[in-house]
Amino acid sequence: MTQWTAADIDDQQGRTFVVTGANSGLGEVAARALGKAGAHVVLACRDTEKGERVARSIGDNAEVRKLDLADLASIREFADGIDEVDVLVNNAGVMALPLRRTVDGFEMQIGTNHLGHFALTGHLIDKVTDRVVTMSSGLHQIGSVDLDDLNWTRRRYSRWAAYGQSKLANLLFAYELQRRLTASGSSVKSVASHPGYASTNLQAHTESIQDRVMALGNRFLAQSAEMGALPLLYAATVPSVAGGTYLGPDGFMEQRGYPHVVSSNKKSHDVAKAAGLWTLSQQFTGVAFPFD
Protein backbone atom coordinates (compact mmCIF):
# COMPACT_ATOMS: atom_id res chain seq x y z
CA MET A 1 0.00 0.00 0.00
CA THR A 2 1.49 3.32 -1.07
CA GLN A 3 0.65 6.46 0.89
CA TRP A 4 -3.02 5.55 1.20
CA THR A 5 -5.16 8.42 2.54
CA ALA A 6 -8.78 9.06 3.40
CA ALA A 7 -9.26 10.31 -0.15
CA ASP A 8 -8.76 6.70 -1.28
CA ILE A 9 -11.75 5.34 0.67
CA ASP A 10 -14.16 3.59 -1.68
CA ASP A 11 -17.76 4.78 -1.93
CA GLN A 12 -19.43 3.67 1.31
CA GLN A 13 -23.04 4.53 0.44
CA GLY A 14 -25.47 1.94 1.76
CA ARG A 15 -23.11 0.85 4.52
CA THR A 16 -23.47 1.52 8.25
CA PHE A 17 -20.56 2.07 10.64
CA VAL A 18 -20.74 2.28 14.42
CA VAL A 19 -17.78 4.30 15.73
CA THR A 20 -17.25 4.45 19.48
CA GLY A 21 -15.77 7.65 20.88
CA ALA A 22 -16.67 9.55 17.71
CA ASN A 23 -17.20 12.89 19.46
CA SER A 24 -13.47 13.74 19.51
CA GLY A 25 -9.97 12.69 18.47
CA LEU A 26 -9.41 9.78 16.14
CA GLY A 27 -13.04 8.71 16.35
CA GLU A 28 -14.22 12.11 15.19
CA VAL A 29 -11.75 12.11 12.30
CA ALA A 30 -12.82 8.61 11.29
CA ALA A 31 -16.52 9.46 11.50
CA ARG A 32 -16.04 12.53 9.32
CA ALA A 33 -14.08 10.58 6.71
CA LEU A 34 -16.63 7.76 6.62
CA GLY A 35 -19.49 10.22 6.37
CA LYS A 36 -17.75 12.07 3.52
CA ALA A 37 -17.44 8.71 1.71
CA GLY A 38 -21.23 8.30 1.94
CA ALA A 39 -21.55 5.91 4.87
CA HIS A 40 -24.28 6.10 7.46
CA VAL A 41 -22.30 6.73 10.64
CA VAL A 42 -23.56 6.06 14.16
CA LEU A 43 -21.54 8.18 16.57
CA ALA A 44 -21.52 6.15 19.79
CA CYS A 45 -20.62 8.71 22.44
CA ARG A 46 -20.73 9.27 26.16
CA ASP A 47 -20.79 13.03 25.54
CA THR A 48 -23.75 13.30 23.16
CA GLU A 49 -23.64 17.10 23.07
CA LYS A 50 -20.17 17.02 21.50
CA GLY A 51 -21.30 14.15 19.32
CA GLU A 52 -24.22 16.16 17.99
CA ARG A 53 -21.87 18.96 16.93
CA VAL A 54 -19.78 16.47 14.96
CA ALA A 55 -22.86 14.83 13.45
CA ARG A 56 -24.25 18.16 12.26
CA SER A 57 -20.99 18.88 10.47
CA ILE A 58 -21.18 15.51 8.70
CA GLY A 59 -24.78 15.78 7.54
CA ASP A 60 -27.94 13.73 7.39
CA ASN A 61 -26.02 10.46 7.13
CA ALA A 62 -24.77 10.77 10.73
CA GLU A 63 -26.60 10.15 13.98
CA VAL A 64 -25.61 10.20 17.64
CA ARG A 65 -26.48 7.55 20.21
CA LYS A 66 -25.58 7.48 23.88
CA LEU A 67 -22.95 4.92 24.86
CA ASP A 68 -20.94 4.77 28.08
CA LEU A 69 -18.41 1.95 27.82
CA ALA A 70 -17.84 2.17 31.57
CA ASP A 71 -21.42 1.01 32.21
CA LEU A 72 -22.62 -2.43 31.12
CA ALA A 73 -26.26 -1.35 31.27
CA SER A 74 -25.54 1.53 28.87
CA ILE A 75 -23.77 -0.85 26.50
CA ARG A 76 -26.73 -3.24 26.51
CA GLU A 77 -29.21 -0.42 25.90
CA PHE A 78 -27.13 0.94 23.02
CA ALA A 79 -26.80 -2.46 21.37
CA ASP A 80 -30.53 -3.14 21.66
CA GLY A 81 -31.13 -0.03 19.54
CA ILE A 82 -28.95 -1.19 16.64
CA ASP A 83 -30.62 -3.30 13.94
CA GLU A 84 -27.71 -3.99 11.59
CA VAL A 85 -24.18 -2.69 11.17
CA ASP A 86 -21.63 -3.42 8.48
CA VAL A 87 -18.58 -2.35 10.48
CA LEU A 88 -18.16 -1.95 14.24
CA VAL A 89 -15.23 0.33 15.09
CA ASN A 90 -14.06 -0.17 18.68
CA ASN A 91 -12.14 3.09 18.94
CA ALA A 92 -12.97 4.82 22.24
CA GLY A 93 -10.48 4.69 25.05
CA VAL A 94 -8.93 6.29 28.11
CA MET A 95 -5.24 6.52 28.93
CA ALA A 96 -3.08 6.69 32.05
CA LEU A 97 -5.85 7.70 34.44
CA PRO A 98 -5.50 7.75 38.21
CA LEU A 99 -7.05 4.69 39.78
CA ARG A 100 -10.82 4.77 39.45
CA ARG A 101 -13.51 2.25 38.65
CA THR A 102 -16.37 1.81 36.22
CA VAL A 103 -20.02 1.64 37.24
CA ASP A 104 -19.61 -2.15 37.49
CA GLY A 105 -16.43 -2.00 39.56
CA PHE A 106 -13.79 -2.66 36.89
CA GLU A 107 -10.53 -0.71 36.84
CA MET A 108 -11.37 2.13 34.46
CA GLN A 109 -8.80 1.47 31.73
CA ILE A 110 -9.34 -2.26 31.34
CA GLY A 111 -13.06 -1.69 31.92
CA THR A 112 -13.44 0.92 29.18
CA ASN A 113 -10.78 -0.06 26.65
CA HIS A 114 -11.29 -3.82 26.75
CA LEU A 115 -14.25 -5.07 28.78
CA GLY A 116 -16.61 -2.38 27.46
CA HIS A 117 -15.73 -3.17 23.87
CA PHE A 118 -15.83 -6.90 24.55
CA ALA A 119 -19.40 -6.54 25.83
CA LEU A 120 -20.42 -4.25 22.97
CA THR A 121 -19.01 -6.64 20.37
CA GLY A 122 -20.73 -9.59 22.01
CA HIS A 123 -24.09 -7.83 21.95
CA LEU A 124 -23.68 -6.73 18.32
CA ILE A 125 -21.77 -9.55 16.64
CA ASP A 126 -24.88 -11.20 15.20
CA LYS A 127 -25.78 -7.83 13.62
CA VAL A 128 -22.34 -7.21 12.07
CA THR A 129 -22.16 -8.09 8.38
CA ASP A 130 -18.56 -7.25 7.48
CA ARG A 131 -15.96 -6.67 10.20
CA VAL A 132 -15.01 -5.54 13.68
CA VAL A 133 -12.05 -3.15 13.99
CA THR A 134 -10.40 -2.76 17.40
CA MET A 135 -8.02 0.06 18.26
CA SER A 136 -4.85 -0.94 20.09
CA SER A 137 -1.60 0.97 20.63
CA GLY A 138 2.14 0.59 20.25
CA LEU A 139 2.14 0.71 24.05
CA HIS A 140 0.75 -2.81 24.13
CA GLN A 141 4.49 -3.54 24.23
CA ILE A 142 4.67 -2.43 27.87
CA GLY A 143 1.58 -4.39 28.88
CA SER A 144 1.13 -7.67 30.70
CA VAL A 145 -2.32 -9.17 31.19
CA ASP A 146 -2.73 -10.50 34.73
CA LEU A 147 -5.69 -12.88 34.70
CA ASP A 148 -5.51 -13.22 38.49
CA ASP A 149 -5.79 -9.46 39.07
CA LEU A 150 -7.13 -7.92 35.89
CA ASN A 151 -8.84 -5.14 37.85
CA TRP A 152 -5.93 -4.11 40.07
CA THR A 153 -7.49 -5.06 43.38
CA ARG A 154 -4.31 -6.66 44.79
CA ARG A 155 -1.44 -5.18 42.80
CA ARG A 156 -0.08 -1.72 43.45
CA TYR A 157 -1.72 0.38 40.76
CA SER A 158 0.40 1.80 37.95
CA ARG A 159 -1.46 3.98 35.46
CA TRP A 160 0.87 3.19 32.55
CA ALA A 161 1.04 -0.52 33.28
CA ALA A 162 -2.77 -0.53 33.43
CA TYR A 163 -2.94 1.23 30.07
CA GLY A 164 -0.46 -1.22 28.53
CA GLN A 165 -2.51 -4.12 29.90
CA SER A 166 -5.68 -2.75 28.31
CA LYS A 167 -4.04 -2.24 24.92
CA LEU A 168 -2.49 -5.72 24.98
CA ALA A 169 -5.95 -7.03 25.90
CA ASN A 170 -7.34 -5.29 22.80
CA LEU A 171 -4.97 -7.30 20.59
CA LEU A 172 -5.54 -10.58 22.42
CA PHE A 173 -9.27 -9.99 21.95
CA ALA A 174 -9.02 -9.03 18.26
CA TYR A 175 -6.95 -12.10 17.40
CA GLU A 176 -9.06 -14.46 19.51
CA LEU A 177 -12.26 -13.06 17.99
CA GLN A 178 -10.90 -13.87 14.53
CA ARG A 179 -10.03 -17.43 15.57
CA ARG A 180 -13.55 -17.97 16.94
CA LEU A 181 -15.24 -16.39 13.94
CA THR A 182 -13.22 -18.63 11.63
CA ALA A 183 -14.00 -21.73 13.69
CA SER A 184 -17.71 -20.92 13.56
CA GLY A 185 -17.69 -20.57 9.78
CA SER A 186 -18.50 -16.85 9.89
CA SER A 187 -17.36 -14.54 7.11
CA VAL A 188 -17.13 -11.61 9.53
CA LYS A 189 -13.57 -10.39 10.05
CA SER A 190 -11.77 -9.08 13.12
CA VAL A 191 -9.03 -6.53 12.42
CA ALA A 192 -6.87 -4.37 14.69
CA SER A 193 -5.06 -1.06 14.21
CA HIS A 194 -3.00 1.52 16.04
CA PRO A 195 -2.44 5.23 15.27
CA GLY A 196 1.23 5.64 16.08
CA TYR A 197 1.88 8.86 17.98
CA ALA A 198 -1.08 11.04 17.07
CA SER A 199 -2.05 14.36 18.56
CA THR A 200 -5.43 13.98 20.28
CA ASN A 201 -7.03 14.88 23.59
CA LEU A 202 -6.43 11.30 24.83
CA GLN A 203 -3.15 12.52 26.33
CA ALA A 204 -4.78 15.27 28.38
CA HIS A 205 -6.52 13.31 31.12
CA THR A 206 -3.79 11.89 33.35
CA GLU A 207 -4.61 14.62 35.90
CA SER A 208 -0.88 15.05 36.52
CA ILE A 209 2.14 16.99 35.27
CA GLN A 210 2.32 14.40 32.50
CA ASP A 211 -0.51 16.25 30.74
CA ARG A 212 1.81 19.22 30.17
CA VAL A 213 4.66 17.01 29.00
CA MET A 214 2.45 15.17 26.53
CA ALA A 215 0.97 18.45 25.30
CA LEU A 216 4.48 19.45 24.24
CA GLY A 217 4.91 16.06 22.56
CA ASN A 218 1.65 16.54 20.71
CA ARG A 219 2.81 19.93 19.48
CA PHE A 220 6.33 19.06 18.38
CA LEU A 221 6.56 15.29 17.85
CA ALA A 222 3.16 13.79 17.10
CA GLN A 223 1.52 13.46 13.73
CA SER A 224 -1.95 14.87 13.19
CA ALA A 225 -5.12 13.06 14.22
CA GLU A 226 -5.99 12.92 10.51
CA MET A 227 -2.85 10.88 9.85
CA GLY A 228 -3.29 8.84 13.02
CA ALA A 229 -6.77 7.76 11.94
CA LEU A 230 -5.58 6.33 8.60
CA PRO A 231 -4.70 2.80 9.83
CA LEU A 232 -8.14 2.58 11.44
CA LEU A 233 -9.88 3.80 8.28
CA TYR A 234 -7.86 1.41 6.12
CA ALA A 235 -8.74 -1.48 8.43
CA ALA A 236 -12.41 -0.52 8.34
CA THR A 237 -12.91 0.08 4.63
CA VAL A 238 -10.43 -1.72 2.38
CA PRO A 239 -12.07 -4.94 1.12
CA SER A 240 -8.83 -6.90 0.80
CA VAL A 241 -7.84 -6.57 4.48
CA ALA A 242 -7.73 -10.08 5.92
CA GLY A 243 -9.12 -11.07 9.28
CA GLY A 244 -6.47 -11.08 11.99
CA THR A 245 -4.52 -8.24 10.37
CA TYR A 246 -2.90 -5.50 12.46
CA LEU A 247 -2.35 -2.11 10.80
CA GLY A 248 -0.28 0.88 11.87
CA PRO A 249 1.87 3.70 10.43
CA ASP A 250 4.76 2.81 8.12
CA GLY A 251 7.27 5.32 9.48
CA PHE A 252 10.13 5.04 11.98
CA MET A 253 9.13 2.87 14.95
CA GLU A 254 5.54 3.04 13.65
CA GLN A 255 5.15 6.48 15.20
CA ARG A 256 3.95 8.25 12.07
CA GLY A 257 3.24 7.63 8.43
CA TYR A 258 0.78 5.92 6.14
CA PRO A 259 -1.06 2.69 6.94
CA HIS A 260 0.54 -0.67 6.40
CA VAL A 261 0.51 -4.13 7.98
CA VAL A 262 2.53 -4.26 11.21
CA SER A 263 3.37 -6.95 13.72
CA SER A 264 2.67 -7.16 17.44
CA ASN A 265 4.65 -8.72 20.27
CA LYS A 266 4.78 -12.34 21.33
CA LYS A 267 2.44 -11.76 24.28
CA SER A 268 -0.34 -10.68 21.93
CA HIS A 269 -0.18 -14.05 20.16
CA ASP A 270 -0.40 -16.14 23.34
CA VAL A 271 -3.37 -18.34 22.47
CA ALA A 272 -3.78 -19.71 26.00
CA LYS A 273 -3.72 -16.21 27.51
CA ALA A 274 -6.23 -15.02 24.90
CA ALA A 275 -8.60 -17.88 25.72
CA GLY A 276 -8.24 -17.20 29.43
CA LEU A 277 -8.93 -13.50 28.92
CA TRP A 278 -11.98 -14.35 26.81
CA THR A 279 -13.41 -16.58 29.54
CA LEU A 280 -12.69 -14.03 32.25
CA SER A 281 -14.22 -11.24 30.16
CA GLN A 282 -17.40 -13.29 29.73
CA GLN A 283 -17.55 -13.86 33.47
CA PHE A 284 -17.04 -10.18 34.29
CA THR A 285 -19.47 -8.79 31.72
CA GLY A 286 -22.04 -11.58 31.62
CA VAL A 287 -21.93 -11.40 27.81
CA ALA A 288 -21.70 -14.64 25.84
CA PHE A 289 -20.96 -14.63 22.13
CA PRO A 290 -23.35 -16.77 20.05
CA PHE A 291 -20.60 -19.05 18.73
CA ASP A 292 -19.47 -19.84 22.29
Rank of each mutant, 00 (worst) to 15 (best):
V103Q: 07
V103K: 13
G143H: 01
G122D: 08
R76I: 05
A73W: 00
A96D: 09
S57L: 12
V54L: 12
Q165Y: 01
D83Y: 04
S158N: 14
R101V: 00
Q165N: 11
F118E: 11
T112M: 06
N170H: 02
V85H: 06
L171F: 06
V64N: 13
P98W: 00
D71G: 12
S74L: 05
L115D: 03
L171D: 09
E107F: 01
K66Q: 15
V87T: 15
A62V: 05
I58D: 07
V41M: 12
V145H: 04
D60W: 00
A162D: 11
G116V: 04
I58H: 06
V42W: 03
I58T: 09
R101G: 00
G105D: 06
A162V: 08
L67A: 11
G38L: 01
K66N: 14
N61D: 07
G138M: 15
R56G: 15
A33L: 09
L72H: 06
A33H: 10
D80G: 15
Y163C: 14
A119E: 03
D148H: 08
F106S: 11
D80E: 14
K167D: 04
A162T: 11
T48F: 05
W160M: 11
G143I: 01
L139S: 07
I125C: 08
I75G: 12
M135I: 12
H114F: 01
A161T: 12
A92H: 01
A55R: 15
F173I: 12
V94R: 02
L168C: 09
V85D: 06
F106N: 08
K66S: 15
T102H: 00
N61C: 03
R101N: 02
A55S: 13
S158K: 10
L168S: 08
M108A: 15
K66I: 04
D146Q: 13
D83G: 08
L150Y: 01
L120P: 11
P98T: 06
R53Y: 04
D86Y: 09
V54Y: 05
N91S: 06
G51C: 10
N91H: 04
E52W: 02
A174W: 02
K167I: 04
M135L: 15
